[in-house]
Structures are given as C-alpha cells and as structure tokens.
C-alpha cells in the first residue's frame, strides 16, 4: 500500500472513531446511568466518576417489572411459533411445489409489507372488544403473528429455494411421506433459516409498542409499556429507568448481535444475501 493511501486510511479511521463515539454515546450513557444512584443520575453537571452500584437493577427485578417481562415473552415466543407453524407450510408450497398462481400469492404476501399497519387500529380495537380480547395477551399474539407472517413466508421460501431439488425427488422416489419429507429433509436443512426468521419475529414483537399500548392496560401489558410508565415520574427515577431499559433491551441486543447478517437479509426481503 502506498504511503498516501495508508495516511488516508488513518485519517478515515479517526473519523470512524468520532462517528462511533457520537453515535453510540446515548446507549453508553443509558448503560452508565443504570449503575448510578438516583441523585448521581439526575445531577447537573452530569456525574462522570462514580462508584457503580447494582441497587437499581435489584430494585427493578424485585419490583413490578417481571410480569411485564413475562407478558412480552409470551407475546414474542407465542407469535414467533405461530409464524413458523403457519409460514413454513406456505413457504414450502411456494418454493418446492409451486402452482399456477404462486407468483400472485407471493405478491399478495409481500405487498402487505407496504401497508401502514397502524391504520387498522380502530377496526382491530373494536374487533378485540367484541371478541373479549382487550387487555388479553392473545390479541397481541395474533396481531404480531399477522404482521410477521408475510416476511416469515418470504424469508423461509428464500431459504427453501436454496435446497437442491434433487433431494426432494430422491426422497419421493424412496417413498418418503410428506411428513417425513418435512421433518427429515426440510427442517434440518433450513435450520439456520428457521433461526433467522425466528429472531426477526422475536425482535419485532419484543419491541412493539403501538398495539400494546392501545389494546392492553394492566393484565397483558408488555415491557415497553412498563418503560413508558416511568416517564410520568420525571426527574426522580432516571437511574431506575436506565436500569429497566438496559434489562429490557438485553434480549434483543443479544439476538441482534448473533444474527446481524441474517437480519439484514430478512429485513431487505432477500435483496442482500
């Protein structure tokens, strides 16, 4: 590498450091605040040197946070499982046994991605009320399933397309039943695809706020609602809020880190492989 190119790389790297610092600063600040005491967290000028304490984390975990956390887990895991159960067969049909109308079905699935889902709030609210599903976690499970399903089908199909077609032919010649084909061939081969799809669904449902705030109140409220409920106590519970926010973001942080490549593939609907 020439000296000029090397020097410009160093220069760009310094710019890179700056970008990381400015960009990442808010998250870093949140993590730090969680380890402070309340007076330290609310002080002006901000406290920079302090002795970290786990008190706020303990208080959040021993307080009223766990039920919200559990509701979020039910909504996320439940809807993700449903997406897989409903989506895998559809993706299989579209990828392995396409029929005449497959293209239209695909187009239908993908076009729902472009609808503003927030627009259906009033009808869904009235529907949930009529079905006695207000403040019931089942309503959120169903809605999250539906929001994630089109993307799930799309993504699973793209993974299924990568399986060599000969494998299915061979299995059918050997007289393998449909069940056998799905469980022994499809599932093991697209295990990474199943994992990626699950993560995308989990992350979305874990973070969803709009429907959660409008369709639940106390019994079925999820983690994002808990975090919003803090804000009314302005200026008093910053450290506790930071600790709770850190805890709530932990599962997603882990999932995002493990699966970033697959996440990109999923969210661009396969435009990046």
């Amino acid at each position: 590498m020439s000296e000029v190119a090397g020097r410009s790389k160093v220069l760009w790297s310094i710019v890179g450091w700056l970008v990381v610092f400015v960009f990442f600063f808010p998250v870093l600040w949140m993590w730090l605040e969680g380890f402070k005491t309340e007076p330290q967290a609310a002080s002006t000028p901000p406290t920079i040197l302090f002795v970290p304490t786990l008190a706020e984390f303990q208080e959040v975990l021993s307080g009223d946070f766990p039920p919200f956390f559990i509701n979020s887990a039910i909504a996320s895991i439940g809807s993700t499982l449903l997406v897989l159960v409903l989506g895998l067969p559809a993706a299989y049909a579209l990828a392995i046994r396409p029929v005449k109308r497959s293209r239209d079905v695909l187009f239908f699935f993908i076009s729902t991605r472009f609808l503003p889902f927030a627009a259906s709030l009033v009808p869904l609210y009235l529907l949930a009320r009529d079905l006695q599903l207000l403040d019931n976690i089942l309503a959120l499970v169903l809605i999250y399933t539906t929001i994630n399903l089109p993307l799930g089908v799309w993504l699973l199909r793209s993974f299924l397309l990568e399986i060599p077609h000969d494998l299915f032919e061979a299995a059918r010649v050997d007289g393998a039943s449909f069940h056998h084909e799905i469980l022994r061939i499809v599932v093991p081969l697209i295990a990474p695809g199943l994992a990626a799809t699950s993560l995308i669904c989990l992350i979305f449902s874990w973070n969803e706020f709009f429907y959660a705030v409008n369709l639940t109140s106390s019994v079925a409220a999820t983690a994002p609602l808990f975090l919003v409920s803090f804000i009314s106590g302005r200026g008093l519970f910053y450290a506790k809020l930071a600790a709770a926010a850190t805890l709530a973001s932990l599962p997603v942080l882990l999932a995002g880190w493990i699966a970033q490549r697959q996440l990109i593939r999923g969210l661009t609907m396969g435009a990046v492989k």
Partner: peptide, 29 residues
C-alpha cells in the same frame, strides 16, 4: 475506508444502537 479494527467497532456500535428497543431509546433521548 477505515482500518479493520475501526470497522468492527463501527459495526458493533451500529448493531447496539439498532438493537436498543425503540421505547428505551426514546426515553434516553
């Protein structure tokens, strides 16, 4: 254009910001 170390750093920063759920992120700001 950056060195591979800074690239990993940038990637990590981006992923952490991305994975911070929207409500805590808004609280933060």
């Amino acid at each position: 254009r950056v060195s591979s170390f800074v690239r990993v750093l940038l990637g990590a920063g981006l992923v952490f910001v991305w994975a911070t759920p929207v409500i805590p992120a808004i609280d933060l700001w």
